[in-house]
Computed example of a mutant assay.
Amino acid sequence: MVLTIHSAAREAGGFLTVNGSLKNTGTAAFVNTTAWRGNELTSSGTSVAGVTLIDKAGKKRYYVLRDTDGRCLCTTGVSTIEAGQSVAFFAQFPAPPATTTEVDFTLPTFATATLKISG
């Protein structure tokens, strides 16, 4: 699996939205997506709710926002990614302070990546 981040952008209302894609570069269907949902938002089902952002300068971790029913504001329904298939994803977070220009992105099973925030 290859994880690509396309953007990490501040949005009106104090949100930060991360957009990206997950591509199965293997020869068989990938079904090991359970870890991506994390332990906290299991009501979101198969999702990328386990993603977090870390503001190292501000010493704060940001979790995916939730709706009033406790479901993540993120891509859901990711249970199988066929060989060669790419799946787009998004995750929305509370925006860090305007002085924060970079955050570390973590999704279980993938290495941590540093993202520059736009907007």
Rank of each mutant, 00 (worst) to 15 (best):
M1Y: 12
M1I: 14
M1R: 11
L3Q: 14
L3G: 00
T4F: 09
T4V: 10
I5V: 15
S7N: 10
A8I: 01
A9G: 03
A9M: 07
R10V: 06
R10K: 02
R10I: 09
E11C: 02
E11W: 03
E11I: 02
G14A: 05
T17V: 11
T17H: 00
V18F: 05
G20N: 05
G20R: 02
G20Y: 03
S21F: 00
L22W: 00
K23Y: 01
K23L: 08
G26V: 06
T27G: 02
A28K: 13
A29P: 09
A29Y: 01
N32A: 12
N32W: 08
N32S: 13
T33A: 07
W36P: 05
R37T: 15
N39V: 06
E40T: 13
T42R: 14
T42I: 11
S43Y: 03
S44N: 04
S44P: 04
G45Y: 06
G45T: 05
T46M: 12
S47M: 10
A49T: 03
A49E: 08
G50D: 07
V51Y: 01
V51E: 11
L53S: 03
L53K: 08
I54Y: 14
I54A: 12
I54R: 13
D55K: 04
K56V: 12
K56Y: 09
K56W: 01
A57W: 00
G58S: 04
K59R: 15
K60L: 05
R61I: 13
R61Y: 01
Y62K: 08
Y62Q: 01
Y63K: 14
L65K: 13
R66N: 12
T68E: 04
D69C: 00
D69S: 14
G70P: 03
R71P: 00
R71A: 07
C72I: 10
C72F: 06
L73K: 12
L73T: 11
L73F: 13
C74R: 02
C74I: 04
T75P: 06
T75M: 06
T76K: 10
T76E: 14
T76M: 13
T76I: 12
G77Q: 06
G77L: 11
G77H: 02
V78A: 06
V78Y: 05
V78I: 15
V78H: 09
V78K: 06
S79L: 04
S79G: 15
T80P: 02
I81G: 13
E82Q: 14
E82N: 15
A83N: 07
A83I: 06
A83M: 03
G84R: 10
G84E: 08
Q85S: 13
Q85G: 01
S86M: 11
V87M: 14
F89S: 05
F89R: 09
F90C: 02
A91H: 11
A91Y: 12
P94H: 11
A95K: 09
P96C: 10
P97A: 15
A98S: 15
T99H: 08
T101E: 14
E102C: 04
E102Y: 12
E102F: 08
V103G: 10
F105E: 02
F105K: 05
L107N: 09
L107P: 08
P108Y: 08
T109K: 09
A111L: 05
A111P: 01
T112L: 02
T112V: 15
A113H: 03
T114G: 00
L115F: 05
K116A: 12
K116I: 01
K116D: 01
I117W: 02
I117N: 08
I117S: 06
S118H: 00
S118W: 00
G119F: 00
G119L: 03
G119S: 01
G119M: 07
G119K: 07
